[in-house]
Design a protein around this nucleic acid. Structure first.
Length: 108
DNA sequence: ACAATGACATAAG
DNA sequence: GCTTATGCCATTG
């Protein structure tokens, strides 16, 4: 690890409760860099599958899967989210009002 | 140090 | 609402 940024992202994503989702901007903001949303996404893509990082629970601000828009890998993510109990709209949009993760209630 | 990249975010047309 | 352009931060070559 060159820096702890990746670890921070992984730690935060790993902190996401089951059946919840967080946006890149949210993660970046928690890390102290609300503009580092790109770096967050990149950290996830760099996340070794050896780790139990629920990267699929991290989506963009629109509550949609970015990968599903241009990469077939998004299908996997969508499948995982549905397996988590998260319901997705016809557009692949997630109900952030219900599934939006709130870091304040991580102790649930 | 510089240039390029990347699963984003926001503003403007 | 969609498309294009710019910004922002961290990593890599």
């Amino acid at each position: 690890m060159s820096t702890g940024f990746f670890e921070k992202v992984w730690a935060l994503v790993a902190r996401i409760p089951y059946g919840k989702v967080a946006s890149y901007g949210q993660i970046a903001a928690m890390l102290g860099n609300p503009r580092a949303a790109r770096t967050v996404g990149w950290a996830l893509s760099s996340t070794p599958k050896e780790m139990d990082i629920p990267w699929h629970r991290v989506i963009n601000s629109k509550g949609q899967i970015s990968l599903g828009d241009m990469c077939a890998s998004g299908e996997i993510q969508k499948n995982l989210l549905e397996s988590e109990g998260i319901e997705i709209n016809a557009r692949g949009q997630i109900d952030m009002q219900k599934y939006g993760w709130k870091p304040d209630i991580d102790h649930e």
